[in-house]
Structures are given as C-alpha cells and as structure tokens.
Simulated assay, not measured.
Amino acid sequence: MTTTINQMKCACSPCLCIVNLSDAIAKDGKYYCSEACAQGHLDGAGCSHKGCDCNSN
C-alpha cells in the first residue's frame, strides 16, 4: 500500500497553516505557506493568512 501526502503543516514553527505541497514554497527540503515563512520572517512580516500570527515569534 502506498500513501501519498498532499498537505502538511508549514515548516515555520509558529505558523498554523496547512499547505498543499503543489502550492507550497519549497526551501531546503521543507515546505512553507509563504515567502515570509520561508525566509524566516526577516522583514518582520507574517504569512498574512487569516487566523495566523506567525510573525509574532
């Protein structure tokens, strides 16, 4: 039996988002919901998804 994973939690630790792997931003073998998360919130921006305040880390 083969299991295919299509969605997973954003690799940004404080982020609450679930991302579709086909839409995710891949960086260093991890999947992120936004450029802000993928870049480690360097400019202080969050992912801007409703209900998620991952820029508050």
Rank of each mutant, 00 (worst) to 15 (best):
C47Q: 04
M8V: 11
L16I: 06
S56F: 13
S34P: 01
K30S: 10
H49P: 00
G44P: 04
P14H: 10
D53L: 02
Y31H: 13
A45K: 15
I18A: 14
H49N: 10
G44Y: 15
C37L: 04
N55I: 00
C15V: 03
C52W: 02
N20K: 15
A26Q: 12
Q39E: 02
L21W: 00
N6Q: 08
E35M: 12
C52D: 08
N6S: 10
T4V: 14
L16N: 12
A36K: 00
C15T: 00
L42D: 09
C15Q: 02
L21N: 04
S22L: 10
K30I: 05
H41M: 05
P14W: 11
E35W: 09
A26E: 14
Y32Q: 01
Y32E: 01
D43F: 12
T4I: 14
S34T: 11
G40N: 09
N6P: 00
C52I: 09
L42F: 10
S13M: 11
I18M: 15
H41S: 03
K27P: 02
C10H: 00
S56C: 15
T3M: 05
C10E: 01
L21M: 13
K50D: 06
H41D: 02
S13R: 13
Q7P: 00
M1E: 10
G51S: 07
C10P: 01
L21G: 06
C15F: 02
T3G: 03
I25V: 11
K30F: 08
G44R: 12
A26T: 11
K27T: 09
A36C: 11
G51A: 08
S34A: 12
C33V: 08
A11L: 09
E35A: 13
C37I: 01
A24P: 02
S34G: 03
N57A: 13
N6M: 06
G44A: 07
C47S: 05
N57T: 15
Y31S: 10
M8R: 13
D53K: 08
T2Q: 03
D53A: 04
C54T: 00
D53I: 00
C54N: 01
H49M: 05
H41W: 13
S56Y: 11
G46D: 09
S56M: 15
N55Y: 15
Y32W: 05
S48L: 10
D43T: 13
C12N: 04
L21S: 06
G29Q: 09
G51P: 02
A45R: 15
